[in-house]
Design a protein around this nucleic acid. Structure first.
Lengths: 209, 209
DNA sequence: TGTACATCAGTGAACGCGCGTTCACTGATGTAC
DNA sequence: TGTACATCAGTGAACGCGCGTTCACTGATGTAC
């Protein structure tokens, strides 16, 4: 059954990718090593040919999730403000939020990551700092621009986190909508009170469950 | 060993309060029923004289957490804008964020709550809607004001969530600082680009840990 | 290049452990007379 | 008001289960000659 070095590396990478997806959709603590290995097409026990512990996998999977997430954002940013706006629109869409694929580990596993070990949190922190760095390249690099980037990041993260746990789909959509609209205002996203003009209808609160 | 009805109700309430605190500090999945009961001064098995399942306790504890949290916010709001600003300042402080006591269940257990059952999410949703309602009373009640409330709530929630998981204390403090400063701007919190004037020093990034 | 041996990725079964939950039992309390 | 009995909050031990992890084993591959 022995595999070449390259094959082993591929297998390991595959496990990390499968785990990254499963952790995001099912949570870290609630997703078992055996479950992940079966999904990856291997046996439960094969896990320990690649990782010393579940913690090690959690660190790698979280880091990998962040890398993919940050890279997608970077590409959208490089493609210009319009492409980035479209990217954010898509990121805020309910399809994306509720889907098992994709997604930001900070939103999907945030409160578990806050209790994770130093290595796991380091990987996520590094990703966030990269994200801020890339976003800053779109601005004049001033302290104000950096603050605006962080404020936007906080608002988007918070809005998605809230919309995901709320048991009232009208409220969930409304929270996202508010943040979405604040983003589409020119330059200083999340800034300036909503234009006073026209239609801002009192929203309808829908069926509860 | 039999207790009166009133005593039983007190015991149940005590279990809920202990559980609420432990879920927030240790996470929901990682905190066991036995652990909670011992902390409450009872035996593991006594749990099932009060609750049908762990899920039931999770729902009640999350709801109770939200109630306490919302009530504290309401009191601060009623005491006027200054008191509320002070309340938010304290809420954003690192002592509060990192402490086991107090805290908002949305921040401390957010990603677990998003996967919880309907009843649990209902309790949290109701709390959030109440919070929004109380905040709206401080405003002119316009759609713009409501959007600003939601935007602020999103930004504060996201900022604390990020600051809790980040492994770089300088970044953690910075994220909070940015949101804190945006709040202290008059009326429309989280609004308007930071005053262009003076000191906005390029922040120092500290030791990584 | 061909052979002989060491390596090690993957297997299947098992480990100890802590989880949520159940159960027979206890004895102080609530209730009926 | 006093007695007799039913109730049920809390106990301690045990349950099945799935978790993370270990282990002896396998056989195809890498390596040394």
């Amino acid at each position: 059954m022995r595999k070449s070095k390259a094959e082993k590396a591929l297998t390991r990478q595959h496990i990390v990718e499968v785990a990254a997806r499963m952790f995001k959709s099912g949570g870290i603590g609630a997703t078992g090593v055996g479950e992940i290995m079966v999904a990856a097409g291997l046996t439960h026990s094969a896990f320990y040919r690649h990782f010393a512990s579940k913690e090690e996998l959690v660190a790698e999977a979280s880091s990998a999730s962040m890398d993919v997430f940050v890279e997608a954002a970077r590409q959208a940013m490089e493609a210009g403000p319009d492409a980035f706006t479209r990217y954010l629109e898509n990121y805020l869409s309910s399809e994306y939020r509720n889907g098992a694929l994709g997604g930001c580990p900070v939103v999907q596993t945030g409160s578990e990551l806050a209790r994770a070990d130093a290595q796991t949190r380091q990987g996520v922190s590094d990703g966030l700092e990269q994200l801020i760095g890339f976003a800053l390249k779109l601005t004049d690099g001033s302290a104000e621009a950096e603050e605006q980037v962080i404020l936007t990041m906080s608002a988007v993260t918070g809005a998605i986190a809230i919309s995901r746990l709320v048991n009232d789909s009208a409220l969930a959509e409304h929270v996202i909508d508010v943040v979405r609209r604040s983003l589409s205002k020119p330059a200083a996203a999340a800034a300036k009170p909503a234009r006073v003009a026209g239609k801002a209808p009192a929203r309808q609160r829908g069926a509860q469950a």
